[in-house]
């Protein structure tokens, strides 16, 4: 399942991270997160993990493998 498949408010865990930059920001395998909002036309996607709020463009988000939980 991809990050883009989750709806606003849903929670999940990261299974695979495509960009080194995301790891620099603290998003690693196993990090629990929640979808907070989506921009106009569903882009970008705002997620929160721990105390971070991060905007990710849809194209990148489509490459992030996640598993839903909660």
């Amino acid at each position: 399942m991809k990050l883009t498949d989750l709806n606003v408010g849903e929670k999940g865990k990261i299974l695979q991270v495509p960009l080194p930059r995301l790891q620099e920001l603290g998003l690693i395998i196993g990090t629990p997160f929640q979808i907070i909002s989506r921009g106009p036309f569903g882009n970008p996607i705002e997620i929160s993990f721990y105390e971070n709020y991060l905007l990710i463009d849809r194209k990148t988000a489509m490459e992030i493998e996640v598993s839903p939980c909660g």
């Binding site: 960009l19 930059r21 995301l22 920001l25 970008p44 705002e46 971070n52 709020y53 991060l54 905007l55 990710i56 463009d57 194209k59 990148t60």
Partner: peptide, 11 residues
């Protein structure tokens, strides 16, 4: 090409 857009949302 469109580089990935990643940005933190500060409080």
């Amino acid at each position: 090409g469109h580089p990935p857009f990643l940005m933190e949302l500060p409080p």
